[in-house]
């Protein structure tokens, strides 16, 4: 299972425009597996831990909202910011988080993330 997750984040992180990919515990917000930081990103570990915790929390809240609206489990979540995007897909007890640059190929990232989540 661990090998599959490593493969999952590795495959995602090699997509154009993906700055980081992580598998995060849905309940605790802790990183299970993360892609290697890009060169020159010494302070990346803390930022990733924070992003992971907040992304899992956000996904949980969106899930609640979605349930309240009787829409079921959220399939894909995208947060668009000035410098890029954060994409989140839930897969049972984990969430898959990808941080994208502004010029990333969102369609491809989305497809890969959805397939990765379904294959678990």
């Amino acid at each position: 299972m661990r090998a599959a997750m490593t493969e999952m984040v590795s495959a995602l992180s090699f997509l154009p425009g993906v700055a980081a990919a992580m598998v995060v515990g849905a309940d605790d917000g802790l990183i299970v597996e993360a892609s290697a930081p890009r060169s020159g990103q010494a302070a990346a570990a803390d930022q990733r831990r924070h992003t992971a915790a907040l992304a899992a929390y956000l996904y949980g809240k969106v899930g609640r909202a979605s349930n309240m609206a009787r829409l079921g489990i959220p399939a894909f979540m995208r947060l668009e910011a000035e410098g890029g995007q954060v994409c989140i897909v839930g897969s049972r007890e984990v969430v898959l988080v990808a941080i994208l640059d502004r010029d990333a190929n969102l369609g491809r990232v989305r497809l890969e993330m959805m397939q990765a989540a379904q294959s678990r």
């Binding site: 605790d28 924070h50 992971a52 915790a53 899992a56 929390y57």
Partner: peptide, 11 residues
């Protein structure tokens, strides 16, 4: 409780 998480609390 479930309104938070260990990751959030640690952060």
């Amino acid at each position: 409780d479930n309104d938070s998480s260990l990751g959030l609390v640690e952060m």
